[in-house]
Write a protein that binds this DNA or RNA. Structure first.
Lengths: 214, 214
DNA sequence: TTGTCGGCCGATCGCCGACAA
DNA sequence: TTGTCGGCGATCGGCCGACAA
């Protein structure tokens, strides 16, 4: 798996990973399970030429956390640096600092699973009202129809433009021009999810979360 | 470079490689130039942990020849197995058996460099009369217009279908439906060449030869 | 509120003969 | 004989409101 070594915005990363995913903060203590690592890793895990038996779990200190995204699929993952602790330091109390320390009031974000109509070639994207009103830049509703160009950066910092229009009877928010190009280049299908997030600096970001295959 | 280990039809291989390319027959003697090999190979050549100086040329016997094609680009190449001979066997006479031993009367083949019109999207392929009359299956000229579906296998054995029509004033042979798909999937551009060949078993084959890149 | 559908319009694809090199 | 061009008809992409869940 090719990857960039530059961590991406942790808030965008978390929005893409979903609410179920929590990462231990730096300097917290965690257990490392070698067997589980080997079973879940895509590539083989090299435990070196260890001739001593590998213990089932090893208490470690989290030395570093990198938030990364696959450059091909945009799927997010993290790389942790773990420093093993001596068993004498094993201390079940206070082992996880129970983080959220890193200035993390939740930023405004919204995720939607793509419908067949969203993913269909030649179609647009039905923007749920909540997303359009709280995440997107405010539309000028005095125009007829209200329309704007929405600019969003993906996990690689690449810029995408979408025509955002509020039309139809009853009125609804839609992304039209630019949407199908995004779907094709990201190879999105119905069931995948899209994430919109307004970063703290005001930038709009877009991420994706792919459906579990088979 | 990924590759299949299965040799392809030597006649198709030679047609794609072009008339300037000659391969030594199996059991003939050739000189191997390590320096030239290292300079021309795409990947690094491993001469092992040789601590003795490498001689500039080594007389070898050709033990095997494999005719191969890159699975991505269709470009043909060969892999030779060379067995070094002792210097005492060095014998300048009769060193190359001057091959063509392998039952090789030239099969009917034709190569054409693609014009801008051939490679243009939305266009067809102007078939030179000689190719249409001697390589392609015979058209039924009593039909109006004379038209048929030409089926050809590429170096991987994949089947391609082309609509072959004889029309216009003055009359000329053209490939229409199926052609632009072939151009796009093979990523052909003006200046590349296409090769048609009628194999000994009667099958029509198609190969490509890419222009030298700047 | 929003997922899906058919209508429709414009862009592009690709087949055609004209013409000339 | 065949390379290039403009014309044009068919197909497709994609924007639209209607309608119903």
């Amino acid at each position: 798996m090719k990857e960039t070594d530059k961590s991406l915005d942790p808030q965008l990363w978390h929005a893409c990973a979903g609410g179920m995913v929590q990462m231990p903060p730096v300097n917290s203590k965690v257990f490392y399970f070698p067997q589980g690592h080997a079973e879940h890793a895509q590539s083989n895990v090299d435990f070196g030429a260890a001739r001593i038996p590998i213990p089932p779990l090893i208490l470690c200190c989290v030395a570093a956390v990198k938030f990364l995204a696959d450059p091909e699929t945009d799927e997010v993952f993290a790389r942790l640096r773990l420093v093993p602790l001596r068993n004498s330091e094993l201390d079940y109390e206070d082992s996880d600092a129970n983080g959220e320390a890193e200035g993390s009031e939740k930023p405004a974000s919204f995720a939607k699973t793509l419908t067949q109509s969203d993913a269909n070639n030649g179609g647009g994207f039905s923007v749920p009202r909540y997303c359009a009103e709280t995440i997107f830049p405010r539309l000028d509703y005095s125009a007829e129809p209200p329309v704007q160009t929405v600019i969003a950066k993906d996990v690689h910092g690449e810029v995408w433009k979408f025509r955002h229009i509020y039309r139809g009877t009853p009125r609804r928010h839609l992304l039209t021009t630019g949407w199908s190009s995004f779907v094709n280049q990201k190879k999105l299908v119905a069931g995948d999810s899209i994430v919109f997030l307004r970063a703290e600096n005001g930038d709009l970001c877009v991420g994706i979360r792919r459906a579990k295959r088979g």
